[in-house]
């Protein structure tokens, strides 16, 4: 038993080392790609535009990253966490896959067996996803002239409204009590001050904050 515990501790320490090294390598690779593109196109990155966009993104998404990390890491274990956070699609893919594998193998979260099963399931899932998307991308290449046809421009110009229409229905139906006030306020603001319409990147900050506050008050009152 003691040997098993020691083996598992050593194994986990090895995964931490490997995970950190590969994550750092991946950060360097990913961070370099936009600069390579910039050189390839012979066009500079807009520094002011980058910082303005980055500041808004970090305000919204850094707290989400922290919450996801705190909630999901114990469910995924060491190897599963490193792989999930680098391969993405955590909520919609990696967590369900890891939980499905846990049920099939009959392991308990927090045990060495669960850590092994979780890592195997997440790694398999990431490899399969990559292969499926590679196959899809190969099929997409000959379709490029169709996808780039001017007639399809309205479709791709409205990809964001399509996303938020679908997501909005899902989230508003889940939490109508949280949704009503932010939706009304933002609508009234955009009707009264048309210049705000093109400033959704700023509007999401007060709207998100207000929704969080309303959610917290409803939670405290036991209404959600």
């Amino acid at each position: 038993m003691e040997n098993k515990e020691k083996f598992f501790t050593d194994f986990n320490n090895g995964l931490h080392r490997l995970g950190r090294v590969t994550l750092v390598a991946m950060v360097i690779i990913l961070g370099t790609i936009p600069f390579v593109m910039s050189v390839y196109f012979n066009t500079p990155i807009d520094g002011a535009g980058f910082w303005a966009g980055f500041a808004k993104v970090i305000v919204v998404y850094f707290p989400v990253s922290v919450v996801e990390f705190l909630v999901y890491a114990p469910m995924l274990g060491v190897g599963g966490s490193y792989l999930s956070f680098i391969t993405g699609n955590v909520t919609n893919m990696k967590i369900p896959v890891a939980m499905n594998a846990k049920d099939i193998a009959g392991t308990e979260v927090g045990t060495p067996e669960h850590e092994i099963i979780s890592t195997i399931s997440v790694a398999t899932s990431a490899i399969v996803t990559t292969l499926v998307i590679v196959a899809g991308v190969i099929l997409l290449v000959p379709l490029q002239p169709v996808l780039q046809n001017e007639a399809l421009l309205p479709a791709f110009n409205n990809v964001v409204p399509a996303l938020f229409g679908a997501l909005g229905l899902k989230y508003f139906a889940k939490s109508p009590k949280i949704a009503v006030i932010p939706l009304l306020l933002i609508s009234v603001l955009c009707i009264a001050v048309p210049s705000m319409i093109s400033q959704t990147s700023i509007l999401i900050i007060p709207s998100g904050g207000l929704a969080l506050l309303i959610g917290f008050l409803l939670f405290k009152k036991g209404k959600i």
Binding site: A179, L183, L184, L189, M196, F219
Partner: peptide, 30 residues
Amino acid sequence: FGAHATTAMFVGLCAAYIGAYIGQAIPRAG
């Protein structure tokens, strides 16, 4: 509350975009 926080955040996100689309649909210049 952690379980509700991410949902609330996304509700706020969607509200901002949908509210802007409602404002944009009001008949006037632009």
